[in-house]
């Protein structure tokens, strides 16, 4: 029988780090400009797909880049930086190509309907919003917000992955890496969906009024990730 209390006591730091990673992912999702189905028809600002797809795309790239860095070094800082930058590159490419579609394909200027002036470039927004739409394309503020959000998501994902791989256990290395990575992916999906319920599916970035709701998602994600982290640490630590 597994000594559950002993494992939790020995790996308590890892449980805390996994929970922190989950909170970072939940916070990061609030910053990514998610437009959902309306944005796919250029009727809302943001990338035209759901939160889960965007967050998972960026976050899983972060996991891959973090795992690649883990091949060559044990340094926590380098691994986290690699995961963060990988996720940032992924979301930047997604938003850039999406932007080309909106500008050259649909033929609409990037504009936000939530603010009158772009908080970063100070450009006027409301004149360029087509009638009957909630904005279109990805304005500068949303783009920068998305890069920051994906960075937080990648940081959280690689922190979870690194913490899971720090747990002492008797598994062969290949099995251990497989279990830790699929576990990190499971946690990533849970923490991408919880904030997407909080923002109701669409958000433009940090300048969107919905961004102020993030403490609720952080609290929800804290509880859910903490519970899952205990189960993960017990399962992996008991092997």
């Amino acid at each position: 029988m597994i000594d559950i209390v002993g494992i939790i006591a020995a790996d308590f730091l890892n449980i805390i780090l996994i929970t922190l990673g989950g909170i970072l992912i939940a916070l990061g999702v609030h910053l990514v400009p998610v437009g959902g189905a309306p944005a796919a028809m250029a009727q809302a600002t943001g990338v035209g797909t759901g939160t889960v797809q965007l967050a998972a795309g960026a976050g899983l790239t972060g996991l891959v880049t973090a795992g690649f860095m883990m091949n060559v070094t044990d340094s926590l800082g380098l691994i986290l930086a690699s995961g963060t930058v990988g996720a940032m590159i992924m979301i930047s490419v997604t938003m850039l190509v999406g932007q080309w579609m909106y500008v050259y394909g649909v033929g609409c200027p990037p504009a936000s309907a939530k603010v009158k002036y772009d908080p970063i470039t100070k450009d006027r927004q409301d004149l360029y919003v087509s009638q009957g739409t909630e904005g279109h394309g990805i304005p500068t503020a949303s783009f920068i917000s998305g890069v920051i959000g994906a960075g937080l998501g990648g940081l959280g994902g690689s922190l979870i992955y690194f913490s899971l791989l720090s747990i002492e256990n008797g598994l062969p290395e290949a099995d251990f890496i497989g279990i830790a990575s699929i576990f990190a992916i499971g946690l990533f999906f849970v923490n991408a969906v919880i904030p997407s319920y909080n923002i109701g599916g669409t958000i433009e970035g940090f300048h969107d009024p919905k961004f102020k709701r993030f403490p609720k998602a952080v609290l929800a994600s804290f509880v859910a990730t903490f519970l899952a982290a205990i189960m993960g640490v017990v399962a992996i630590g008991g092997m």
Binding site: G36, V52, F189, V190, V193, G201, M231
Partner: peptide, 17 residues
């Protein structure tokens, strides 16, 4: 508010843990 796919991914995310 987020489309149906999110809840399926949540189910499998929890399921895998």
């Amino acid at each position: 508010g987020t489309g149906v796919p999110s809840i399926g991914m949540l189910a499998l995310g929890i399921g895998i843990i």
